[in-house]
Amino acid sequence: MNILVIFFLLFGLFFFTGGAVGIIRMPDFYSRLHPAGKLDTLGIMSMVLGLALYNLNHFSAGTLLLSIKMILIIFFVFLSSPTATHSIVDAGIRAGLRHWSKEQRRVE
């Protein structure tokens, strides 16, 4: 059981690392949203799933309820994270930000 928990946590930490490095390295605002919106979502889902599994080690009604709450967090993040990403990209489009592209860079 503990091996599965450690696997889930390391899997999530791996994706969180990718998200953090991607936010630093990507060239413009729109492409930064890709690691921020998606790698973080998968990271939070897998890490919270691992913690919920660890919580079920001492099985009782109380820990089951806590694990259900953690699953509720996963479900909520699964719904809300794309919405938040979409909201940010919508603000960028309405503000008129141009997106970074290769052609634009060649002209300069």
């Binding site: 919106g37 990209v89 919508d90």
Partner: peptide
């Protein structure tokens, strides 16, 4: 459809 496109990496729904 829009949320699935956003969650699949490489693509983000704009409108």
């Amino acid at each position: 459809m829009a949320n699935s496109i956003t969650l699949t990496p490489g693509t983000v729904t704009v409108t």
